[in-house]
Design a binder for these strands. Structure first.
Lengths: 255, 255
DNA sequence: AATATCCATTGACCTGGATCAATAATCGGC
DNA sequence: GCCGATTATTGATCCAGGTCAATGGATATT
């Protein structure tokens, strides 16, 4: 844990300008946008969600929860990056997603977590006890609706990833990965042609269904072709159109 | 279609014993279990859901809705099998799931369908107009909750499939496919060691991220090993344990 | 500064599954 | 029942990406 952790503090809503929660918290936490849920909440609801949540910090490379563990909590990521992993008993691993600020973890609301969540960087989350979260959320139709939309979006992303894993080439996979990450960073408000890649090559490989060597070779190839520049802890996109070509099918268009 | 089809008829709930919908419908439809939603509905709610839904039939190999089309309807499959496909412009295709009776289609509730839904067999569905469905469902917390759980379950299945697509061998993929199908048929009440495979080899290949030839060879191999018997339109499982071995990782367990 | 550890890159080679190419079943349509 | 069309099986060959191995570069430890 690098920075001081204020005792349980608010993370329920978009920052009220002059936020005082009456519990001695400053409100840096509130500056993080939580588009998924907190868009349309009433002040009273914010107060209540507030009471349900605790801020937690996790150092890089620690586990927020393990695959198949009882799903006691729901998390909203406010800072950092989390990887969601499924593993086979022999160690083969598939990363099913990288969570960025605003994303929910454990929202499937099943008995047990289907994936493990591991901090890629330092991570800050809002943690909700599941029963309290459920009890609160029940009877808030627009909130339920919001959560459902979030789940639907997740499902849609998962289906895109299935298409990628099942039918795309190594080059298309890496290109799609970079372009998606860029889009997501932009949505989090960190738009830039330089994409931070805090995760390891092994993580990228396990996300794309490739090996570390193939990821490395493909990135090198893109760099040779002047489509990207590899920088410390990231990549600078030079010719997005060119990357898109790798991503999209270069259709054969007969006759 | 095996049994007579009455004109537009109810499909909103688990069969009330002496079902009369007041619209001249007999209730064979209601015998189909819809565990996902209809488990805990009030009679009044059933009536209303009833009014919102229409029964539709689709012949085999027809499309219920197309990828990227406006998501005007929500469907509940009551009979038959539907494949959910995503395609790349050059024709590469990934089947992201096969729907069986009880499953919902278009529940992500987004503007447009992310996948195409195509009837594998003759299909019967309950169709809901999306706005009506949403309006009805809003303010029914337990129903929303149910739908959310369904979406969560879908997501979990999608993640399992990602692990399969990204990290399993052809043999493991085919074995997992057969075992999953068996489990699902059992849940639909059609338990048997003989698994119907109404979909084509190409469908199976596109579901597992393989080619038709590899699917065929792998099934032949299992048959040679006396783990399955290939029968017309299906497969009979002989040694489920053996299949499970192919499916699960045969862990190397060092020292 | 030297050493150990870990991770990424690069090269050489191999292989599981793809591709290409015949058959062989199966299914409609008469 | 016969014929053409579609789909499945089987075999021969190929190659994208995996495996194995060496090297380089970065970070941490003493």
């Amino acid at each position: 844990m690098t920075f001081a952790e204020p005792s349980p503090t608010s993370c329920a809503g978009p920052a009220p300008r002059d936020c005082k929660h009456g519990r001695g918290n400053d409100c840096d936490d509130c500056k993080v946008r939580r588009f998924s849920v907190c868009g349309a909440l009433e002040p009273a609801e914010l107060e209540e969600l507030d009471r349900l949540s605790q801020v937690r910090n996790f150092p890089a490379r620690t586990m927020l929860f393990d695959q198949d563990a009882p799903a006691d909590n729901v998390f909203n990521l406010t800072d950092g990056m989390v990887r969601l992993c499924k593993s086979l008993p022999d160690g083969r691993r598939q990363i099913v997603g990288f969570a960025l600020p605003g994303d929910f973890l454990g929202l499937a609301l099943m008995e047990r977590y289907g994936v493990a969540a591991e901090a890629v960087t330092q991570v800050r989350v809002c943690r909700f006890a599941r029963p309290a979260f459920l009890a609160y959320v029940d009877g808030k139709p627009h909130l339920l609706r919001r959560l459902h939309e979030f789940a639907g979006h997740e499902l849609s992303l998962a289906q895109d990833q299935m298409l990628l894993l099942g039918r795309k080439t190594a080059e298309e996979k890496v290109a799609a990965f970079l372009l998606n990450l860029q889009t997501r960073y932009a949505r989090v408000g960190a738009a830039s042609v330089t994409i931070p890649l805090p995760m390891s090559r092994q993580d990228i490989a396990d996300y794309l269904g490739l090996t570390i060597e193939t990821v490395s070779r493909t990135l090198t190839k893109f760099a040779r072709e002047k489509v990207i520049v590899i920088v410390p802890d990231g990549v600078r996109l030079l010719m997005i159109g060119r990357l898109d070509q790798s991503d999209a099918a270069r259709s054969a268009v007969p006759f």
